[in-house]
Write a protein that binds this DNA or RNA. Structure first.
Lengths: 408, 408
DNA sequence: AGCTTTAGTTCATTGCCTGAACTATATGAG
DNA sequence: CTCATATAGTTCAGGCAATGAACTAAAGCT
């Protein structure tokens, strides 16, 4: 199909559709077919024609463009019993996208080729708490630059990138409205400085949203509608509907950490009252578990908590139970509001799942009976690196959906 | 928009784009431009060309198709000072769509012409509580048939219709999953029997969703992102994002009535606990206000409540205060989950607004500080008939967005 | 009456998809 | 070894849609 035009043109103005749009749309269709073929298999032009409904002639012509743009490449032959073997096509592994992440205690960058393979990856520990945005971005830029040049030596060209940040972002503007744990407020990031002179530029993501996208690609069950909840210092979330991230009108949707789960509860860092985060965030759990972890790093805190849980310490167990119950209340509400009844636990929720699961299920049963089956409560399939991979994957996907952006 | 191919074609299959799609898209673009022009003004072909970016030649050709399909018509001349006057174009008032509604104590049908004017409207009181779906639909079919033939006598042809029902629906399947107040469960409605042999058929809507769409068309402030909350026997809701209804993956999104606002609260008819509906639904308010209204009709109940409030009765006042607080908790959560911070009060919330407003604002301030300004809490601009108008309007809009469905 | 201005139509051109014919390259039967 | 068959991919005429330029139509102004 085609494309354009926000539906309507008031006296304002809108985009007309012309024949060229058909080509753009079909380029994306063909490229999408190549990308979606079972990994390992490299479809031939004929198979693509079959999958897309386009004629062989059209596919040939479209494939020619994609080859010229360097987005795909031909790879060996593809015998099928009788007849002339097809020429395999695959996403060009010589082109990559940079996933980048700023988190509380590290920065990282990874080159991910168009097929989704991590080519190079570097992590640098760095205490970013209350560090202004400029120096952090500068450090990340040098890290990314190093990864980029190493990739270049291996013959891999970086086309663009995606940056994940733990905070409320305005993706379009490249602005971080607020990132409590970094201490950033209304930070306008100079994203282009991270990867100078790339055709695709750098996109900005909320960390949990990016991780949700990574989850989407790596889910063994192939789920296309779910809520990803990420337990971190706070509680983040990403909503995936129809294999698309649901961002809401301004790009801030999915902030499940601030669903009210206890109207009589305590003050939240957001200024609200009784938010999920005040019960199920890391600091809240540590405090309720009676663990003194003021200066400790997050990972140290988590392993201390785990030990306490494995030792069966009552306060730790009840703190996690309480978090599970609160999470259930929040998820009961999201099931109704966005009609999603499948949840993926990430961050510390994934680590705590053995202790969290039962109270969570009971809570869901109490507050939203019949909405969630136990199988719909799952644990993240991607680990720590979810945000990184998701940011890169999302940029790759946007390229696959609009390949004409590369000269073609 | 136009649309497209869920991005990709796995080995499954997908829709290729051909040149014909461009025409379909541009037909919608032109028709949309006509529909969106300030009411009263009938744009000329040249103005449409200016607004859409299409050339005059293309617009002429497209307009010809729309005229042939009877979707628009030429109307008088349109002088602009100097030069040849343009020929005005408007949506054909001789074509209409039927809005229909089944509610607890009435059924109604209205013919709404393509420009949005109500041509004829009929309401029939009928106690539908615990009446099976078939007889209700049969009664509605005769009502709709009468309206249709009256319209026919006036030279207005009915192209299709939309039915709004107070319950959880699967719009695509024409099924009502559950409508507690009608007593329907898994009711497969024979929608086509309501309006036999129309080119567009009959679409199914949740009542609050339809009302939200009506709100969208009639908003004085032209808001395109808001949450419509409708206080009825239960509490319904409709989420509008970017002037589109947000339905979620299965079409049930926006069920704000079952957001958990009191984890220690009472049982809800949905089986859950502490749902908004158990505090802010009509029955809940009546009970808390100490009004005995078992057998009374809803409207009688509401006027009794109003009287009590105007008389300053403490129990009534505190019941409404409590509802306002609970609503605020729910809206605090939706602001975070779907990133919407503008709410339109409908149903009994609109009636009770004078008493509801203050506690609601205070609650929003407490649970989601800074998210809502007072101006973002507004009262419905369409009254009782919202669902009816919204159902019709949505069908009209879907026609405007895909005019090729009418032979053309 | 004639000039100017704007509306709308006609027509040759271009771009893209399509379907049919054709070439290319494999397997398997005789 | 050769030929039949089957499948992959290319070439080419045809059709449809938008475009831009030229043209016709219908007003107001002088």
């Amino acid at each position: 199909m085609v494309m354009p035009a926000p539906a309507v043109a008031g006296p304002g103005g809108a985009a007309p559709g012309s024949v060229g749009d058909v080509r753009r749309s079909n380029l994306a269709l063909v490229l999408g077919a190549i990308a979606e073929f079972p990994p390992g298999t490299c479809p031939s032009r004929a198979q693509i024609a079959g999958a897309t409904g386009l004629t062989k002639a059209s596919v040939s012509s479209l494939v020619l463009d994609l080859l010229a743009a360097g987005i795909i490449r031909e790879v060996g032959l593809n015998p099928q019993g009788r007849g002339r073997p097809g020429v395999g096509l695959e996403l060009n592994p010589g082109r990559a996208v940079m996933g980048m992440e700023v988190n509380v205690d590290y920065i990282s960058a990874a080159a991910v080729d168009l097929a989704g393979n991590v080519v190079i990856r570097e992590v640098r520990e760095r205490d970013n708490r209350n560090s202004a945005d400029a120096p952090v971005l500068a450090a990340l830029a040098t890290l990314a630059g190093r990864v980029r040049s190493t990739a270049g030596e291996q013959g891999v060209e970086v086309l663009g990138g995606g940056l994940a940040v733990p905070g409320l972002v305005e993706p379009a503007a490249g602005r971080v409205l607020i990132a409590p744990n970094l201490g950033w407020v209304d930070a306008d990031l100079d994203l282009d400085a991270l990867l100078p002179e790339t055709p695709l530029g750098v996109a900005l993501f909320n960390e949990a949203n990016a991780a949700a996208l990574a989850e989407l690609r790596h889910r063994p069950d192939g789920a296309s509608d779910f809520l990803f909840v990420s337990g971190e210092v706070g509680v983040g979330g990403g909503i995936v509907i129809g294999s698309e991230l649901f961002t809401g009108p301004e790009g801030h949707a999915g902030e499940v950490g601030h669903i009210v789960v206890d109207p009589d509860g305590g003050r939240c860092s957001c200024g609200g009252t009784g938010c999920l985060e005040t019960i199920a965030g890391q600091d809240a759990i540590f405090a309720a578990a009676g663990l003194a972890l003021e200066g400790a790093s997050r990972s140290a805190g988590m392993s201390a908590l785990r030990q306490a849980l494995e030792a069966g310490e009552t306060k730790a167990l009840s703190a996690v139970r309480r978090a599970g119950r609160a999470l259930g209340i929040a998820l009961a509400s999201t099931a109704r509001v966005v009609n999603i009844h499948s949840v993926v636990l990430g961050g510390h929720f994934a680590v705590l799942e053995p202790w969290l699961r039962q109270p969570l299920l009971e809570s869901l049963q109490k507050y939203a009976p019949g909405k969630y089956t136990p199988e719909q409560v799952t644990v993240s399939a991607v680990g720590e690196s979810g945000a990184l991979l998701g940011a890169a994957g999302s940029v790759i996907r946007s390229l696959v959906e609009a390949p004409h952006r590369l000269h073609a």
